[in-house]
């Protein structure tokens, strides 16, 4: 554990993430104001003692909404990355371990998925299935699957002919045991780096989709929605647009730094 925190990228990323998580945990128990409580007399107020980060065009407290917005971002990011990881891992491990025709077909499909710009793919899925929390998560996890599948596959291809896997075969271990009990622990570090980087892109894509009106819907306090609403008041209330922007940036930077740090420690060149 000490080794991890001696890596500057990982350390800084973790500190930022820790602060974000602290805000998230506080928001479970207490937000300064109700996130949907309007106060039209007090709209677009400057940051003050009452409203620490000011209010929006309906007089809602921006700090409270950002706190809930972090929750939405992290929830969607977590769900999207974990389901993307699960499916990517399953696809990549079978494809990489067994190889052959199945592998060829699967990889062609994955390549096709990767050829689409991620957000475009998500937009198509949302256009077909409608928007909302669940569909946003599904769209984002479909975006994450190819990356995990590729990383997993290359790890399995590399290790399936290694001496310790051969030794396991000679000992009589079955394919599933070799795949998940022996090969998988050896690629966990690469997968965790990828997961962290995917987390960052999932948060960004969610904000992007919500900004375009395709992800979460108002009055949900998504950072993307806040951003799209705030842009009309950019000159009158610059803090309103800056705060969600900085929050998204910090979240993305935190996960990217952690991912980079993990990759550096795995000996990857990045």
């Amino acid at each position: 554990m000490k080794r991890y925190f001696s890596n500057p990228s990982f350390l800084i990323g973790s500190i930022i993430l820790f602060m974000m998580l602290a805000l998230l945990v506080i928001s479970f128990f207490h937000t300064p104001y109700d996130v949907t409580a309007m106060d039209l007399a007090n709209k677009l107020a400057k940051p003050s003692q009452e409203h620490f980060l000011g209010t929006d065009q309906f007089g809602r407290d921006i700090l409270s909404r950002v706190m809930k917005g972090i929750e939405v971002s992290l929830l969607i990011g977590f769900m999207a990355v974990s389901s993307g990881l699960l499916f990517g891992l399953l696809i990549g491990s079978f494809s990489g371990y067994f190889g052959g025709r199945l592998d060829e077909i699967i990889m062609k499909i994955i390549d096709t998925l990767m050829a689409f710009p991620g957000v475009l793919l998500a937009m198509m899925l949302i256009a077909v299935f409608g928007n909302g929390l669940l569909n946003t998560i599904i769209a984002l996890s479909v975006m994450a699957v190819p990356r995990f599948a590729r990383i997993t596959r290359s790890g399995y291809m590399e290790l399936r002919d290694s001496d310790f896997v051969k030794a396991e075969r000679i000992r009589g271990a079955g394919s599933l045991r070799i795949m998940f009990s022996h090969i998988l622990p050896n690629i966990v570090s690469e997968l965790s780096a990828t997961a962290s980087l995917s987390f960052a892109s999932a948060i960004m894509s969610e904000a992007g989709l919500s900004y375009l009106g395709l992800g979460m819907q108002p009055p949900s306090p998504s950072l993307g929605i806040m951003l799209s609403e705030a842009q009309d008041y950019m000159l009158r209330a610059p803090w309103y647009v800056l705060i969600p922007t900085i929050t998204i940036a910090l979240l993305v930077i935190a996960f990217n730094l952690i991912g980079d740090g993990l990759q550096e420690m795995n000996g990857g060149v990045k």
Partner: peptide, 13 residues
């Protein structure tokens, strides 16, 4: 079977 290289023939994890 016992392999030549004991560094690669035992799962490090």
């Amino acid at each position: 079977m016992v392999f030549q290289d004991p560094y690669s023939s035992i799962n490090p994890k």
